[in-house]
Amino acid sequence: MPADRLNSLDPNRIAQHLRGPDGLVFDIGPFRVRAHSRLPAIRDHVVEMYGQYPLADPDYADLRFSVNPPRGLRALWRGQVNFRFDEETPFKPLPIAQARPFFEWGLNWCIATTAHQYLLIHAAVVARGRFCALIPGRPGAGKSTLCAALVASGWRLLSDEMALIELNTRQVWPVPRPISLKNASIDILRGFAKDVFLGPVVTDTHKGTVAHMRAPADSIAAAGIPAEAAWVIYPGYRAGAALATTPVSPCRSTLRLADDSFNLPLLGARGFSVLAEVAQGCRSFELVYSRLEDALDWFDRLAGEAMA
């Protein structure tokens, strides 16, 4: 029997859980999280972005975190919010208006500092059938925009932020989460796909303006199904440019992926051999584009060749 989803609870009940001693316990891909918060903004974020995720038994969670205003003297200065991973406070407090992105960034941190049963790569991951594409990218390369557009046009979302590569099987595991859109890409995506759900726009963060796009229900429902890495695409948005692709050798791709890995230094030689094997098994390209439609067509052709 499938577990109940968060949206089987009304928002008041969700707020009660978030405030209560057990928090709100639900599954995001392989991770069972326990979220605590007293903030209405976090309740809204959870209701809007995580409604489709399965609720879980509150006895156990892998990751316990909270987003709350500081206690004690600091609470006198209103308007700040802390992220805590169990009892750790890994970041300085942020303005309360940034509570929603802080929830997402903080959860990224929890996963990236503990999930070393996987090789973790800073990349968006989208799938077509049983094959997936890793889309690594430095800030500004258009990784999230491209990921959001692909997902809005039918690709399955595995992650907007990190590829989880299982060390033994080399399979890529989904951890579907809201897609974090920044600055101009917010309006680009609104114009591109009318029916996606975007949360409120948060201004003045260290990444500029941020808004979250809800992950598609199908992708969340398929969170237990891994995919096989088939492509590594290094995107580069360039205004006015015609679409151009350049193949990247497996060797070069290994080194570039190594640079984008969160935990390769921790996994050492074992992680590196997994990485090299993954790169060896993928077709890798640099992709320069200006029009999202062109990029999507190109991705569809790529997927078509693999299926054929």
């Binding site: 392989p30 156990y60 503990t114 999930a115 070393h116 921790l266 050492g268 074992r270």
Partner: peptide, 15 residues
């Protein structure tokens, strides 16, 4: 789930 957490920690310790 517990096994996964322990395994992840063991990877780090080995390194």
């Amino acid at each position: 789930r517990v096994r996964a957490q322990l395994t992840a920690a063991a990877e780090v310790a080995a390194r």
